[in-house]
Amino acid sequence: MCSKRAALRFCVYALFCYLPLAQAQSTLVEINQMQVERSDAGVFFSSNLKFELPGLVEDALHKGIPMYFVAEIEVLRDRWYWSDRSVTHQFRYMRLAYQPLTRRWRLNIAPTPIGNSGLGVVLSQNFESLPDALASVQRLSRWRIADAADIEFDGKTHLEFSFQLDVSQLPRPLQIGALGQTDWNLSGSRNLRLTAENPK
Rank of each mutant, 00 (worst) to 15 (best):
S136Q: 09
F161P: 02
S136A: 07
D183Q: 15
G177K: 13
T157K: 00
L159D: 03
R172P: 12
A148L: 02
N185C: 09
G155H: 05
L179Y: 14
L179M: 14
Q169A: 11
N185G: 11
L134T: 01
I145V: 06
D147Y: 10
L179Q: 15
G180R: 04
L186R: 05
Q181W: 15
F153A: 00
R144D: 08
L165M: 07
V167P: 11
F153M: 00
I145P: 06
W143N: 02
L159W: 03
V137T: 01
S141F: 10
A178R: 13
E160G: 05
P171E: 03
S168F: 05
D150E: 11
G177P: 11
P173W: 10
D150I: 01
A148F: 10
S189M: 14
I176A: 09
F163Q: 05
Q175T: 07
A135K: 08
G177I: 06
F153W: 00
T157E: 00
T157C: 01
N185H: 13
L134W: 06
G177A: 15
G180Y: 08
E152V: 08
N185Y: 15
N185L: 14
Q169I: 09
L179F: 15
R172T: 12
G180V: 04
W143S: 00
L140P: 09
I145Q: 01
R139H: 13
R190K: 14
I151V: 07
S129I: 03
A149P: 03
W143T: 05
L186W: 04
Q175K: 04
W143R: 00
A135F: 08
W184Q: 06
G188F: 03
D132F: 05
Q164R: 15
A178S: 15
L174R: 11
D154K: 06
A148M: 07
N185K: 13
N185D: 12
I151Q: 02
L159R: 02
D147F: 09
W184E: 03
L140V: 14
Q169L: 12
S189T: 10
Q138M: 12
N185A: 13
H158A: 02
V137G: 01
V137D: 00
S187M: 09
S141M: 05
S168V: 02
D147A: 03
G180N: 09
I151A: 04
I176K: 07
L130A: 04
P131D: 03
S136N: 04
D183L: 07
S189W: 13
G177E: 11
A146L: 06
